[in-house]
Amino acid sequence: MSPATPGDGAAAAETVLRLAVMLQAGVAPAPAWHHLAASQDPAAERVTAAVADGMPLPRAIAASGGAWRDVAVAWHVATTVGAPLAESLRGLAAALRDAAEAADDVRVALAEPAGTARLMGWLPLVAVGLGVALGFDTLGVLVGHPAGIACLVAGGALILAAQRWTARLVRRARADSGVPGLHAELVAIALSGGASIDRATAVVRDAHAAAGTRNAADADADVDADADADVDAVLALSRSAGVPAVELLRASAAHARHRARVDGRLRAARLSSRLLIPLGVCTLPAFLLLGVAPMLLSVVSTMSLSL
């Protein structure tokens, strides 16, 4: 799937929906893009400029990157098989909007535990300032006493480890890039144009290469294995039950997006407890090394001098 920034999918969904409305109203594709560009839509401006330079439309759409790569693939599939372009873009816009909302939900859910983790990361440095405020020679011990220097080095290493550990946990809890269920949505678009199942899957594979999202040689390998298995299961059900596969595939795509949203919320919920591990293993020991230990060493040094 294509990597995307948090606002990328929502912005693409809005533009694609406007495009679908114009197409449904009878505006041809090329003028529709020009109308959007005239309305100062940034993506449409880039697409029309690339097309004016001689770039094929799917590649011009994909050149914007992020979610626009998925739009380019869907556009190529629909135009290749003759599927209703406006209807196909409406479905894709809904998929992009759902994926963006799911990513927003996860980002909001992650904000509190991630913010708490960043705040707790300052705890060892606060301990240093607290020692100084209480009148202890904390800084002198940390830079002038052999044991203090050892505490400074170990505490700094633990702070760095805690930051990297926390960042990795937060990164793993974030939503996956791309649009869940996109493969099923693309196959549904191909089938809605009257293509057979075998040709639909071939057209989707070729569309990725035509849009420049991946090479034709590795197009099959680059499709997510789970998504491919889900589509195969839906197509097998369609064959055995003798029912159209298009609605089954779109229902499967909607379910994949719902599942991705729930999984993201669960990852965010688990993050709160997982962040306690670097806190206990790294941050609290760093607090002791940089805050408590220098104060004790300062007291011992003062007592030794007085004796």
Rank of each mutant, 00 (worst) to 15 (best):
S2E: 09
G7C: 02
D8K: 06
G9S: 15
A12W: 07
A13F: 02
E14N: 09
R18I: 02
L19P: 11
G26M: 03
V27W: 01
A30I: 14
S39D: 12
Q40R: 15
D41C: 06
D41E: 12
A44M: 07
A49T: 09
A52H: 08
L57E: 04
A63R: 13
G65T: 08
G66T: 10
G66H: 01
W68A: 02
W75C: 00
H76M: 09
A78L: 02
A83E: 05
P84W: 07
S88H: 08
L89I: 01
L96F: 04
R97Y: 05
D98H: 12
A100N: 05
A100C: 03
A103V: 07
D105F: 06
R107F: 04
P113Q: 03
P113T: 01
T116Y: 07
T116G: 15
L123E: 02
L125Q: 12
L130P: 11
A133W: 12
F136M: 05
G144Y: 02
C151D: 11
L152F: 06
L152E: 00
V153M: 12
V153H: 03
G155T: 05
G156D: 11
A157F: 13
A162H: 04
Q163Y: 14
R171W: 08
R171K: 14
A175K: 07
V187Y: 01
A188G: 00
S192N: 11
G193E: 05
G193F: 02
D198R: 13
V204F: 03
D206E: 14
H208R: 14
A210F: 05
R214A: 11
A219M: 07
V223N: 01
D224W: 00
D224E: 05
D228R: 15
D232P: 04
V234N: 01
S240Y: 07
P244Q: 08
A245G: 09
L248I: 02
R250K: 09
A251E: 14
A256D: 09
A256M: 04
A260Y: 08
G264S: 07
A268C: 10
L271H: 09
L271T: 10
S272I: 08
I277T: 15
C282E: 03
T283E: 03
T283R: 04
L288W: 06
V292P: 08
M295H: 12
L305W: 07
S306T: 11
